[in-house]
Structures are given as structure tokens and as C-alpha cells.
């Protein structure tokens, strides 16, 4: 159980959440972190279970999301790390943070660029996941079109500046970086009301 000071510090740091909302997110965190291994920390299998409803299988995006949430790189997501990352998904979080997070997510090999090979890998993974079959020619055509648009200096990789310009031109590509639910977290997790340390 977190102290009021810890909750208040996390709320303060997040710049998006109130203390009550951090408490509500703690309820969600506890639920996920006890789903497989009851140690109060989120392991990759638990994040996978929460996202896919199954702990089995391998998913490229899950690996990247987990890696970004796991700031200390100790193979678990602590509550503080959970709040740090999830706050980027708040509707009021700065657009700059969302652009930065999505860039790091797609920069699979963490080279500071989103390379064409990485984009292909993610397209293929998404098609596999949704059981859609496209010919290799069509995938290459999609990549050609995307890079024509995003890779303005034509070096076959997308820099952070190019990514920013691309996102501003096509805001829908980071639509998933905003979770409207986070604006009303306390309503989504009413159970926290019974545990709250904050009086009205």
C-alpha cells in the first residue's frame, strides 16, 4: 500500500493525474500485477494477458511497449514506471511527449532512427496478427509510399524531426497514443473509493 505522500508525488510528477486518479490507477495496477505472479509487480506475461487476454505467444509491439514502460530495465514494471508511461497516454499530455514515445516505440533497434527494415517488420507483424495477407509487392508499395511522405531527406530512415513532421501531417497515426478513459479514471475504477486515503 502506498502512502499519501507517495501518491501525491506521483500525481505531481505526472502533471496529468490527481491523487485520486493515481489511487484509481493503483487499483488497475494491482489487478494486472497479481494476475499471474502475485508479487505486486507487472511482468511481461501479465501485460500480455491484460492486452491480449492470453499470456501465450510473442508480439513485437508488446515487447516494445514493455521495454519502454520498464525504465529500470529489470524485467518488471513498477507502479512508478507504470504511472510515468501511462501519463503520456492522457488526453491532456503534451503532444511532444506522445510523438517522442511513439518514435521510441517504433525505433525497434534503438538506433535513433526508424529504419525501413523496422517498418517492414512491424507491418508484417500487424498483418500476421490480424490474419490479413498482402503480397510482398504490396507491402513494399506501402513502404515506398510511406517513406516518400515521411523520409524527406531520402536516406531510407526516419529521423525524429521527420517523424514529428509526418505525425503533424497525419495525426491519426498517433491516435492510439491517447486514451480517453484516462480522463475519467476514477469512474472507470470505482473500487478505489472504498480504499481511498483522500477525504473530500
Amino acid at each position: 500500500r502506498l502512502t499519501f505522500r507517495e501518491l501525491a508525488d506521483l500525481a505531481d510528477e505526472s502533471r496529468c493525474f490527481s491523487v485520486n486518479e493515481v489511487e484509481a490507477l493503483y487499483e488497475l495496477y494491482k489487478k494486472i500485477s497479481c494476475s499471474i505472479i502475485d508479487d505486486g509487480l507487472i511482468h511481461k506475461e501479465e501485460l500480455q494477458l491484460a492486452l491480449f487476454r492470453t499470456p501465450a505467444g510473442k508480439n513485437l509491439f508488446l515487447d516494445r511497449v514493455f521495454d519502454l514502460f520498464d525504465e529500470k530495465k529489470n524485467s518488471v514494471i513498477e507502479f512508478e514506471e507504470f504511472i510515468h508511461s501511462i501519463s503520456v497516454f492522457h488526453p491532456n499530455a503534451p503532444l511532444e511527449d506522445k510523438i517522442d514515445f511513439s518514435f521510441r516505440l517504433y525505433d525497434l533497434r534503438q538506433t535513433g532512427f526508424i529504419e525501413r527494415e523496422e517498418v517492414k517488420q512491424m507491418v508484417v507483424a500487424t498483418l500476421l496478427e490480424s490474419e490479413v495477407q498482402l503480397s510482398d509487392d504490396l507491402v513494399e508499395a506501402i513502404l515506398d509510399k510511406t517513406f516518400e511522405d515521411a523520409d524527406t531527406d531520402k536516406d531510407n530512415r526516419i529521423s525524429k524531426e521527420e517523424w514529428k513532421a509526418f505525425v503533424l501531417k497525419h495525426p491519426s497515426v498517433i491516435k492510439k497514443m491517447t486514451l480517453p478513459t484516462l480522463k475519467d479514471t476514477t469512474a472507470a475504477f470505482p473500487s478505489f473509493v472504498f480504499n481511498t486515503q483522500v477525504e473530500d
Partner: peptide
Amino acid sequence: KPESMNAFALISRSQGFNLGNLFEK
């Protein structure tokens, strides 16, 4: 649709990137 030729619009549909699922009851 023009979006269908946008690799990132396609990628953003992946379930692994759909954190909204965390909030599903």
C-alpha cells in the same frame, strides 16, 4: 483509402499497441 498506403496507420492497429485494452473489464 489513402490511409491504407500509410504503413504507420496500419501498424497502429496492432493489439499490442492498443493500451486501451488494459481498461477493459
